[in-house]
């Protein structure tokens, strides 16, 4: 017995049963009464998405004019995986001990980090998971790392307060957490913080890092942050970025 040969990764399709079958599962609601017409409409909508062999396997009335569907279909589209392999590298992640070792070699003394969830954002779970000793899911937060000095200012901190504390503490990096993203509230707040930071001469060399469960890494470029950490990122990802950044800086200076 041999496993099926690995597919040509320049042309990959979704699959569920056989490689290349294109099977996907979709769940959605439509604002129409439950019935045969609703089912036909749902199938037609899925057809427009580039799907074939559409099967509505479940439909359910949620209200007199709302119906929910579960649909299986075959997506005919394919993508070239290789182009993403080059474009989007895996985020590097070192172990805590390796990070501590390399931080010590930098000879910077303690690296000062100041973090907060700013603006009206009241969520602190993500910020605490990254910064606090306890961390998350068995992985220690940055407070536990030798060579890092962490100041967690908590949630609902005005942008200006965060900047002032960061300047006063001589922060190497400012970490801003944003959880609420409805109507781009996070972008407005992050942009405001970045703009205000440019006025602080003492923060000229400070790194600005943002993070939150719904933030995409590309957001860093859009908003002029040095890095952006989203869903699935751990304290080690953040620390790895920091140590690699300072190492690069040192090499460039020499």
């Amino acid at each position: 017995m041999t496993l099926p040969s690995p597919p040509d990764t320049s042309r990959i399709k979704a699959f569920g049963d056989h490689l290349g079958d294109g099977i996907v599962q979709l769940c959605f609601s439509l604002p129409v009464p439950n019935g045969a017409a609703a089912e036909a409409a749902a199938a037609a909508l899925v057809g427009k998405m580039g799907m074939e062999r559409v099967q509505v396997v479940h439909r359910q009335e949620l209200d007199a004019h709302v119906t929910f569907f579960t649909v299986f279909a075959r997506c005919r589209h394919e993508v070239n995986f290789r182009q993403f392999e080059d474009l989007v590298p895996e985020r590097p992640c070192l172990s805590q001990s390796e990070i501590e070792e390399r931080l010590a070699k930098l000879g910077l003394g303690e690296v000062v980090l100041v973090g907060a969830a700013t603006g009206t954002d009241t969520h602190s779970v993500g910020l605490d998971a990254i910064l606090n000793l306890k961390g998350y899911h068995g992985e220690h937060g940055l407070e536990a790392y030798k060579g890092l000095q962490v100041h967690n200012l908590g949630s609902q901190v005005p942008n200006e307060d965060l900047l002032e504390r960061a300047a006063a503490l001589g922060a190497h990096a400012v970490l801003v957490s944003q959880t609420v993203t409805q109507q781009d509230l996070h972008k407005k707040n992050l942009a405001a913080l970045r703009a205000a930071a440019r006025k602080h001469t003492r923060l000229r060399n400070t790194l600005f890092i943002c993070g939150g469960p719904h933030l995409e890494p590309e957001l860093a470029r859009e908003l002029d942050y040095d890095a952006c950490f989203g869903r699935g990122c751990t304290p080690a990802h953040v620390a790895t970025f920091l140590v690699e950044h300072f190492e690069r800086q040192l090499t460039q200076a020499n």
């Binding site: 009335e61 949620l62 209200d63 709302v66 009206t120 954002d121 009241t122 609902q156 609420v180």
Partner: peptide, 24 residues
């Protein structure tokens, strides 16, 4: 609209979450 769907599915109490930071 959402509360009606909740009621139809047997929900007994509907609580509308407040806009973030209204408490402040």
């Amino acid at each position: 609209l959402h509360a009606r769907a909740v009621a139809a599915a047997g929900g007994d109490i509907v609580a509308v979450i407040r806009s973030t930071a209204q408490s402040l």
